[in-house]
């Protein structure tokens, strides 16, 4: 492994660590057991949507002009944005909703996550 590749992996790891922290903070703040949060895990939803928007923007032409450095680009895309979102917790929460027979909540959660994620990514990519 070359020094450049090792440095690239290091940057991805650092970005990933900060992404995980952001996701944890959002879950801590928003995933309480009051009101709508009892039905839909807003922390994971917010983390996924913020990460989808930021990853979309990082692949837009305006961001590519700003971020010329390859290592920084990988740290922000493959590291931070990818790690700030999670598919495992999303799938786990859906499986738990289905287990508890909360079919409407599971359907709404999946639909909101996917459509809002797609729309935000598309909008950000065209900024």
């Amino acid at each position: 492994m070359s020094m450049d590749t090792a440095l690239l992996y290091f940057f991805i790891a650092i970005g990933g660590g900060f992404g995980a922290l952001l996701r944890m903070f959002l879950a801590d703040i928003l995933d309480s057991s009051n009101g709508i949060q009892r039905r839909i895990p807003l922390g994971t939803l917010a983390a996924n949507l913020i990460a989808a928007f930021s990853l979309g923007w990082l692949h837009s032409e305006s961001a590519l002009d700003l971020i010329g450095q390859r290592h920084l680009f990988f740290a922000l895309t493959m590291g931070f944005s990818a790690s700030a979102s999670t598919f495992s917790a999303f799938a786990f929460q859906l499986a738990q909703m289905l287990k508890l027979k909360k079919y409407h909540d599971a359907f709404a959660y999946a639909l909101i996550s996917i459509f809002a994620g797609l729309l935000l990514t598309l909008a950000a990519m065209n900024l």
Partner: peptide
């Protein structure tokens, strides 16, 4: 597991 999996990349690939 949160770092290993990614929702945003799936959204980006879909977009």
């Amino acid at each position: 597991c949160g770092g290993l999996t990614t929702f945003s990349t799936v959204c980006k690939d879909g977009a």
